[in-house]
């Protein structure tokens, strides 16, 4: 704990789901009906314009992990109204998502289109593939994806825009927040205990970022 943190006398109180429901109420039938079991034309169009998604998986014990994926809009491919495929590009080789999927095939996706306040949520079951016809659709800058994640869709729904409105996510003025954070080099140098000038670490990372594929 950081010495500046407000000290709690105890852990924050845990309340039951019944108590939660008592506070927020039951969803209206209209809201429940927005959950579909397949990718309709609006969801398909949204996915075709999304350059970014967050991908949640969890291991056998239920410990979750959420990982960012991004590329040109439509990088996640709709194979049919029940199936999606997400390319795997070079990353940190930790393969957390793949390891989780081997233990627990549940997956949750959140697609984001810049400028749009609503997000698209897709939940389902997933597995890795090296199917050539799937990987062929994912060639970028002359390089094929090495693997893809196939998602068998169970639930698809648009999530309302309040979170993105409150967060001012698409307001250009919000980008001023970045200046309030330390550089990636400062963070990495401290967290990894490196005795290197943080500016050098930042430059090394920037050079690595130029090799995206």
């Amino acid at each position: 704990m950081n010495s500046n943190d407000v000290a709690f006398k105890a852990r924050p109180r845990r309340i039951s789901h019944e108590e939660v429901r008592a506070r927020i109420g039951e969803p209206e039938d209209l809201i429940k009906s927005k959950v579909h079991d397949r990718i309709d034309r609006h969801s398909r169009r949204f996915i075709a314009h999304a350059p970014f998604l967050a991908m949640a998986t969890s291991d056998a014990t239920g410990l979750p992990d959420c990982s960012p994926r991004g590329d040109y809009p439509g990088f996640a491919k709709v194979l049919d109204e029940r199936t999606l495929a997400i390319p795997d590009r070079p990353g940190n080789q930790l393969a957390d998502s793949f390891r989780n999927l081997a233990e627990n095939d549940g997956i949750g996706l959140m697609f984001i289109v810049p400028g749009v306040r609503e997000v698209l949520r897709v939940n389902g079951r997933a597995y890795p593939t090296d199917e050539p016809d799937v990987l062929a659709r994912m060639r970028t800058e002359g390089k094929a994806a090495q693997l893809a994640i196939v998602v068998e869709v169970a639930e698809v729904f648009f999530h309302c825009g309040r979170a993105l409105i409150r967060s001012r996510l698409w307001d250009p003025a919000s980008q001023a927040l970045a200046a309030e954070l330390p550089s990636v080099g400062e963070i990495a140098a401290e967290q990894m205990g490196l005795d290197i000038d943080p500016a050098v670490v930042t430059r090394m990372l920037e050079a690595e970022y130029r090799e995206l594929y």
Partner: peptide, 13 residues
Amino acid sequence: PLSRGGSEYVHLY
């Protein structure tokens, strides 16, 4: 049918 996103975009979107 194996579009990487070009012809599919033209046809569908």
